[in-house]
Design a protein around this nucleic acid. Sequence first.
RNA 1: GCGCCCGUAGCUCAGCUGGAUAGAGCAGCGGUUUCCUAAACCGCAGGCCAGAGGUUCGAAUCCUCUCGGGCGUACCA
Length: 547
Amino acid sequence: MLKSFVHSLLKSAWQDFDHNRSSEVIEIEVSRADRPEFGDFTSNIALTSAAIKGMSPRELAQQIINRLPHEGIKRLEIAGPGFINFFLSDEVFQRALRGIILAGERFSQSSHGNGERVQIEFVSSNPTGPLTIGHGRQAVLGDVLASLYSAIGYQVSREYYFNDEGEQVNMLTRSLWARYRQVWGEEEPLPEQGYHGEYLVKIAQNLKERLHKPLPHFDTAAAQLFKEEALSQMIACIKDDLDLLGVQFDNWFSEATLHKSGEVKRALEMLDEKGGIYEADGAIWLAAEKYGGTKDMVLIRSDGRPTYLMVDIAYHINKWNRKFNYVINIQGADHHAQQLNMKAAMRILGYPEDFLTYGLHQFVTVKEQDGVKKMSTRAGRFIELRTMIEDLGKDVVRYFMVARKPESHLELDYALAKQQTMDNPVYYIQYSYTRCASIFRNAGKFIPQRWEEVDLSLITQPVELDIICLLDRFPEVVKEAALTFAPHLVAEYALTLAGKFHRYYTDFRILTADQTLTQGRLALLWGVQSVLRQTLQLLGISAPEEM
RNA sequence: GCGCCCGUAGCUCAGCUGGAUAGAGCAGCGGUUUCCUAAACCGCAGGCCAGAGGUUCGAAUCCUCUCGGGCGUACCA
């Protein structure tokens, strides 16, 4: 990579200058210049170490420059208060492009993760209704994060944890039963806290056709039957919704299995052995506050039933036992306190601090004529994810969901997104890919046997070198996006690259009369298209050959 | 009250491990097509980076406080 190339030059110059190591070790920093007149790369080393060396920054910069090797460098400058600006030679860029072409689809990948196992748990919505736009954001964030982690060399598993036990499920079951009675024409009110959505009516109707019996009594057998039916139908519905979004899970984990296997009980015993629990007011409590939690939390209610946190702790022990090196949970901002308490439990159990991390995201609000509306399932103010995908298409939805940084609120102008789809950045990015494809279709005799062997000596335009510089940055972007839970960086990057390419395409002809020039430019486009394809792949957005 | 997140162009948002003149898209105005797809390109206009202090050679970025918005603070999940 270009950056590490410059870094190595600077390092050798610094070591030469500081050969007696009289001063403390300083970190050598190289960054990409953000203005063309500042060169390709810039370093503030003279600014940060001037005080240590007792020299003025500009004088120090000159000393370093005197010791810099000349190979690969077009020009060096001292600028402003003492920045060292590097202007690289064309050959260095051409070499970088060759490397990008050679790497092909592997260019975004690195071995940072060393094949360590990462589990990413996301969505994990209760199977009590269809997914909403809010779940959609989490689904896309989790899915893209998973792709990013696997790109940087981790072995990734996507997991969905579903609640198939407890009060919510009972409520769902009774709601379905009420709907079932209703489709038989009986006056059966829905439970007050029940699920009022239309979707249960459909399930009830299907059930009627299968059973052919009115089932007047909600007995144990009926409860079991309706529970199984409700759960399996709801999970199928959720899977369908996720499928439309292009999100697929490696594992669906049932909460009920944790109870059946005795893992919940065992988890409590483990916490007890570590001295992390105590009894009070007839309940069993987790001493969370002492370990960084927000406050002590009830694990076992006074009636003997475990709380959600208790079961969740058992679930995380289960994850640990499955030998994941790291687990990441993607959750909405409303779970913040829960996360701190879960972390406290992990500390009590003695798990490494970095075993569990949370990726937090803010909610989606929808803007309509009468102002901003917050999604609320209970108040019936929500838009189903499925509706949105049908309206806007998978690619647009995925882009919208991932284009903002997770910790920002995502305000969606639904009407605008719906009617102005052609002004959408997604199409802008996709079109840049399509343009490349189109040129290759027209290139005919210019298509070389091997792209990596093309003569690049005529690729010297500033725009061209600038594009190579941007391509070169891609692996860094992928890595940063993964490690800092910032998938939006990839979306941002794709947009920038598409913009640079569109401008280049407008200003320069690719297919010319000159064989060498044409092949060189085609090679550049080959690199551009390859990186565009990789960004789209990471985002889960399609890369169309024609539009 | 306490904890976390956010406050940058008219709108939606990047930039925040401090760096040299704060960016993009949309909306507005004005241009570009005998030529590889105009789903594109160019130009104009638009900002006391919520506010006040502090640290620093240097702050949108770090620290403190204030104001404004969201979320949490259950023997709910």
